[in-house]
Structure formats: C-alpha cells, structure tokens
C-alpha cells in the first residue's frame, strides 16, 4: 500500500529509506562483533593470525562487481536491455566468485592450523567473515531474482527502484567488506 507515498512526491522512496535503516541495523551487528573483538583482544590468550591471500583476490572481485552493478543501473536507465542483462550476469558471477574465494581463504588458513575452535581470535575471524559472506549471499539471491525479472517476458515494469535498491545494498556489503578487511589487518 504505497498510495500514501505516491501522494507525496519529493520524498525518498519508502523502500529505499527502509533499506537505509536496515543497513544501520546490520552495521550495529558488526559493530557489536568488532567491539567484542577489540575488548577480547586486550585480554590474555589472544592469538594473532595472518589473513589468506585469497581474501585479497576476493576483495578485487567484490570491487569489480560493484562497478558492473553500477553500470547495470546506468544501462537500465538508458533502456539498454541487453547490456543491462550482461552486466547483471557479470555482477552475479563476480559475487559468486567472491563467496568461492572466501571459502578458499578459509580452507587455506584452516590447513595452517587456524581452525574455528582453535582460539577465540580465530573464532572471531570465522564468525565475522562468515556473517559478511552470508550478507553477500543475500545480495546474490536478490540478483538472481532481478535476473529472472530481466529475462521474463511477462514483466513490463520499468521501475528503477528495485535496481537502485540492489545497488545500494551491494555497494554497502562491498564497503563493509573493505572495512572488515582493514579492521582485521590493523587490529590483530
């Protein structure tokens, strides 16, 4: 029931606003975890760790995916359907690549003895990176839905809002990853 919103132009779309508040909420969850990490780090028995190289590759993948998704939005606005579809697929592939590289990274450090239950610091590493990957997976599911819509002949809705929503969310998980990476590098 968006009639109320339609009656008032000039205002941010309610779904976009909801997403922003939701992003604030997700941020607080990570703030909780990272501040718990900082408190725990200052106590005894803290083991440091090296991040796997795969995390750098995954960073490249998610940065690239943000660019492709941004371009997809632009193509959508310019009504270039074919390009829009291709860019959406590229984003999806890069997103999946990100997840795969995170799993590869986990496998590498696990082999080095950095296991989930090995030390509290390792548990934090797996929890924080894992939760972030789950949020990327949520974005991937949304991308798949968008892709179905982009190929469905039945959908004749040219609203730009969903494309903008997925853009905002995707850039958010991208920036969140950069923050978490920097956090895990500098605060060990």
């Amino acid at each position: 029931m968006l009639a109320g919103a339609m009656e008032q132009k000039n205002k941010i779309h309610p779904h976009k606003f909801t997403l922003w508040v939701g992003i604030g909420s997700i941020l607080m969850m990570f703030a909780g975890l990272t501040s718990a990490y900082i408190i725990k780090r200052n106590q005894v028995n803290w083991e440091t760790f090296e991040l796997p190289v795969a995390f750098w590759w995954s960073t490249g993948a998610i940065l690239a995916s943000s660019i492709t998704l941004f371009l997809a939005l632009r193509s959508f606005k310019e009504r270039q359907v074919h390009r829009y579809r291709m860019l959406l697929i590229s984003t999806l592939v890069l997103g999946l690549l990100f997840i795969v590289l995170q799993i590869v990274g986990f496998a590498n450090i696990w082999a080095q003895g950095i296991t989930f239950t090995g030390s509290v610091s390792y548990s934090f590493l797996y929890t924080i990176v894992g939760l972030h990957a789950l949020h990327v997976l949520g974005g991937i599911i949304a991308l798949i839905v968008m892709l179905f819509k982009a190929y469905s002949a039945k959908v004749r809705n040219y609203s730009v809002v969903p494309v903008e929503l997925i853009n905002t969310y995707w850039h958010f998980v991208d920036i969140l990853w950069i923050y978490l990476l920097a956090f895990l590098i500098f605060i060990r």
Partner: peptide, 14 residues
C-alpha cells in the same frame, strides 16, 4: 530497537 537488538543478536550468536 533497530540499533541495539542487532548487538544482542551478535551476543546470542556467539
């Protein structure tokens, strides 16, 4: 609620 419940969620998850 939106700012503090996620922190409890973190605590419950751990």
């Amino acid at each position: 609620g939106v700012l503090t419940f996620p922190v409890l969620f973190s605590g419950v998850l751990l």
